[in-house]
Design a protein around this nucleic acid. Structure first.
Lengths: 235, 235
DNA sequence: ACAACAGTTCGACTAACATCGAACCATGAT
DNA sequence: ATCATGGTTCGATGTTAGTCGAACTGTTGT
């Protein structure tokens, strides 16, 4: 009667509001402490501890101890994938409940997805990289071109270094708001890092949303030819 | 505190064992009646009715009345996507529980995913279609080539007809067992239909698994060059 | 050493929800 | 008409699991 993987366990794990909030917060890609997560979820530390324990033993979260702090993060890209797939569903199946507030606007415009750039801007950047011949479609995925290799090295991303890791260098990741893929993987993460370091982008605190700074605005338009109206969402 | 789509509702909906079983059964892609689903889930018709009602109002299922029967099916590809993503998770996060019985073997070898071919064979076929230049990667997706257009017409698939539908013609779909994409969309569904009609494949009843017939074995090897050892899994 | 803080364990409470028995509405067959 | 079958609604039941108060284990800092 029952065959294949048991999706019910995992799904019910994600199905609790407190846990879902924690997971959504961790889509950020960074690690958060137990108390931070308890605040985000709106529950007491005891309750949060229970939830975190369950998610960790289920393999959704990975734990990193640092002194008296315990940092939790999503255990991998697959978890982020499943969460995004659920977001696709819940953003379209019952659109009546979707409160399209300013936060939602910002979320659709630019946000982090696990550890790379997503949203409208993330998709546009991916398209631009293909347009410029820095990456290209290949074998159901994305590959770095010769020109891309040179360019990424030039802006300070160590491509050979990326290839040594066990993580996939490039990886298409489906976007819940745009319903189109954007660039993930080690390269996607490295690009986000560089853009943050360059001061082109800013993380808003307590949110996955990303702010484009004036220099970033200029750079994305001039270097990648991303249309101005696309960058300047009313947020 | 809470932002973006509410994934908890959807996830908890999928998180109930009875409902998860129903959904898994419907990954088949075909429509099943309420009582059939109640049997699959192992609950009484009353309970099943309640579950089905909830999933329908949530937009996971779509309903088709025929006489005194009510046929339920997955409401779309996105639902199947989310389920597959959850399968990816549950197949790897707690592998201890994964009973690798014969059914599981067959599942990994060849199965239907919503309405197209998946599993090891599904991925191999997709690769073969690309190899032969019948489809190709394009814009983060798959596109039909000129040669492909001619070929598919020749084997009885009406490509212009497919393009009139609102459904995407080609669509990469991530495989939970292979962890690689295979061909979905209207074309993927049409190919499965044709292969079933030709007698190359057989649906096993009460299962999503697919059996390759002797003529199918020969055809897939000769027409698409799929290695024999890949087709002849020990099932 | 002491206090403050991060985090966990334990036990009890509560609320949500899946489940089923029974009765009820359809549709289809005789 | 009458009966069987597919399916739903209602109400009652019972179990599960999220929640928090209180007490406890560490770690950091003064």
């Amino acid at each position: 009667m029952i065959e294949g993987p048991y999706i019910a366990e995992i799904a019910s794990l994600i199905g609790d509001p407190a846990r879902a909030n924690m997971l959504s917060a961790l889509m950020d890609g960074r690690a958060l402490t137990a108390t931070e997560l308890s605040l985000i979820a709106g529950v007491t530390p005891q309750t949060a501890s229970s939830h975190l324990g369950k998610m960790q033993t289920a393999g959704l979260l990975s734990l990193e101890k640092q002194g008296r702090h315990r940092y939790f993060r999503l255990s991998g890209q697959d978890v982020a994938d499943a969460l995004e797939a659920l977001m696709v569903l819940s953003s379209q199946t019952n659109p009546r409940k979707r409160h399209t507030g300013p936060k939602d606007q910002a979320m659709r415009h630019a946000r982090t997805c696990y550890d790379h750039l997503a949203g409208c801007v993330g998709v546009a950047l991916t398209d631009a990289l293909i347009e410029r011949g820095l990456i290209r479609d290949q074998d159901h995925g994305l590959a770095i071109t010769e020109a891309g290799s040179r360019y990424f090295e030039q802006i300070g991303i160590d491509i050979p270094q990326l290839k040594t890791g066990k993580r996939a260098v490039t990886r298409p990741c489906l976007d819940w708001s745009e319903r189109r893929p954007h660039l993930g993987g080690a390269l996607g993460a490295a690009i986000l890092d560089r853009f943050l370091e360059k001061g082109w982008l800013n993380r808003r605190k307590n949110s996955r949303t990303i702010q484009i700074t004036p220099p970033g605005y200029q750079a994305l338009r001039e270097e990648f030819g991303i249309p101005a109206d696309l960058l300047a969402a009313n947020v």
